[in-house]
Amino acid sequence: MLADGSFAQPVKAIGSLVTKDMSPVEAFRSIALSCLVQLQRNEAGAIFEKNPEYVHQARVAIRRLRSAFNLFSPVLAPAFVEDFSPRWRELARGLGSARDWDVFLTETLAPLEEAFPDEDDLVVLRAKGEASKDEAQISVGTTLTQKAYSQLLLTFSAALFSVKRATIDDSKKLSGLSLRKFARRRLQKRAAMVDGLVSEHGKMNAEHRHELRIAFKKLRYALDFFTPILPPKRLTVYQNSLTTIQDLLGTLNDQTTASRLIGKLHPKGEPESLIRGWIAGRTQLLIKALSSELSRFVAIRNPWH
């Protein structure tokens, strides 16, 4: 909160501060710290403000941290991962509902209202959706003011920078790699996972799209983390395509989420044919655009080679 009682603007992800002379564990510490900073800078706004961007950026911070856990797991002590990874996952779930309702109201329902302003069913969905969003926002405030949240921040920070090197498992071979070699190995594993799923993109059902979205998100976060030590010339084209694909997959996931949320709200237990048709039509357009972008993506050379 600022001196005049207002809140600073929502804080987006802080750029990676890793350098080539860091060890993999030092890089993890730097990335984890930047995630904590982003989370805490959005904390007050997420609790007290109605602007949904605070909650969104708090969730981004937690997602990035969880991705870092997974990416750097070969050089982290198993006890450290087993203790904290589930706790951050649970916190992320506590913030998820508010963001889902906001996206539904702004990205799905608003265009429908503009196209069909006299549709009574949409009026009902708007009223119930806004009420559900308000309830979810209150839940966010409760989650971020609980003792468990403060304890998580304190204990995680203490373990992260413990002089006893609690985050390190010295018995693992990868802990002795240079950061560049470690990055290449981990990025290649992420890319191989994406390639395997892309080769089966003809399936393109909701379950497969979800797996594809998670794989692309992990690859994108890994690239973001390692950007300072990667060749910049090839990185831009690769990242641009990756971002486009992730955006398309995210919007497709929003359609699936919208159908689920509408099912909860609709007075008849299911959406009218108008709404079902709108979502189905938009989904097909997005799938077509995704297929074209995937074809372009597989032709781009990996920038870390």
Rank of each mutant, 00 (worst) to 15 (best):
A13Q: 06
W88D: 00
V18G: 02
V140W: 03
A46E: 08
Y54A: 02
Q137P: 01
L153R: 05
V237Q: 14
A166F: 03
L212E: 06
M1S: 14
I47K: 06
A92S: 12
L154S: 15
Q40I: 09
D224N: 13
E114Q: 10
A136N: 07
S178C: 10
V140E: 05
V124A: 09
I262R: 00
T243N: 09
K164M: 13
D254F: 00
F216K: 03
G202W: 08
Q57H: 10
G250Q: 04
I62A: 03
D100K: 01
E113K: 08
F182I: 07
V123R: 03
Y238I: 11
Q246R: 10
P232E: 08
D247F: 05
L235Q: 13
Q40V: 07
F69H: 04
V75P: 04
E43R: 12
E90C: 03
R99A: 10
V60I: 12
R296M: 09
R41Q: 10
A44S: 11
M204P: 05
G141M: 03
N240R: 15
F161V: 09
A159M: 04
A183W: 01
K172M: 12
F84T: 03
A280K: 12
Q151S: 14
D224P: 05
A3G: 12
F28D: 06
R185K: 13
I275W: 00
